[in-house]
């Protein structure tokens, strides 16, 4: 083997190592007692403990945060599906002269700096008495989920072969049943990826949740960041355990999302 190739392989391996090692190390630290973490030489061998994870799962604030995150993100994603998918289908299959503008408008929502949305919304929710409640968070997150799902679903619907839909029309299906019974099932694989992506996006969201909640509606990222605000007095193991808990749900979608990426690029190729 040529030395250049060997170096290239080594660099790739190093990058792969860097991609996951910090996370694995965090997971390992979540199983350590404090004495095994606060060492000048990192320790690989130690007697594992479940105390950190037990502590995290036993805290009310963490459980409330988990509940809030699941409810707020879950409902926002459902709203995004209910409103975003039909709209995407209409843009993809019934081209009109506004189609380009609509797509640009949906994308431009992503340009808005989160602070610029969060500050006025905080004032508005305070005025209508919904500040620090889940409904306020859900409505705000829906803006994110609807626009992202719509943006990603338009190409997914465009990739459905037109002939199948035409055939269904000839068979006497109405426009709506073509959407329900043909387009949705055929595009399902890509659509699941789009929906999973929108879930990860709102699950990971931090700034808006930070500004729109003070005690009742805190989501998991906020709770986790607050644990660290108590300085380094909090045992590191507990902090690491909370990071692991926060990171698990998005990682569950790893398979779905990498499949989604593959299908997007396979379409391009053909």
């Amino acid at each position: 083997m040529k030395p250049g190739r060997l170096i290239a392989k080594a660099m790739l391996a190093l990058a792969g190592f860097l991609a996951v090692f910090p996370l694995l190390w965090t997971a390992l630290n979540a199983l350590k007692n404090n004495v095994d973490i606060i060492t000048r030489v990192p320790r690989l061998m130690f007697s594992p403990t479940l105390a950190n994870i037990g502590y995290i799962l036993g805290r009310d604030s963490v459980l409330t945060g988990l509940y809030n995150s699941v409810i707020a993100c879950g409902i926002a994603v459902l709203i995004g599906v209910a409103l975003g998918l039909p709209a995407a289908y209409a843009v993809a299959r019934y081209p009109n002269r506004f189609a380009g503008d609509i797509q640009f408008f949906v994308l431009s929502l992503r340009f808005l700096p989160p602070v610029a949305v969060a500050i006025p919304l905080m004032v508005i929710w305070l005025q209508v008495g919904l500040y620090d409640t889940l409904p306020a968070l859900i409505v705000t997150y829906s803006l994110l989920t609807i626009s992202v799902i719509m943006w990603l679903a338009i190409p997914a619907f465009q990739a459905v072969p037109k002939e199948i839909e035409e055939a269904a029309f000839v068979d006497g299906y109405g426009a709506y049943s073509v959407f329900w019974r043909i387009a949705l099932p055929v595009a399902a694989r890509s659509l699941v990826g789009a929906v999973a992506f929108s879930f990860v996006l709102v699950w990971n969201e931090f700034l808006i949740a930070l500004m729109l909640s003070s005690s009742n509606a805190k989501t998991l990222p906020i709770v986790a960041s607050e644990l660290s605000q108590q300085g380094m007095n909090v045992p590191w193991g507990i902090l690491n355990a909370s990071v692991v808990l926060l990171s698990l749900p998005p990682l569950l979608f790893l398979g779905v999302l990498s499949g989604f990426l593959n299908s997007v690029f396979r379409q391009k190729k053909s």
Binding site: A19, N204, F206, P221, L246, S247, L251, L257
Partner: peptide, 10 residues
């Protein structure tokens, strides 16, 4: 793909 899936806070 793993790092980008993590919450920024994590």
């Amino acid at each position: 793909i793993i790092p980008v899936l993590l919450p920024r806070v994590s």
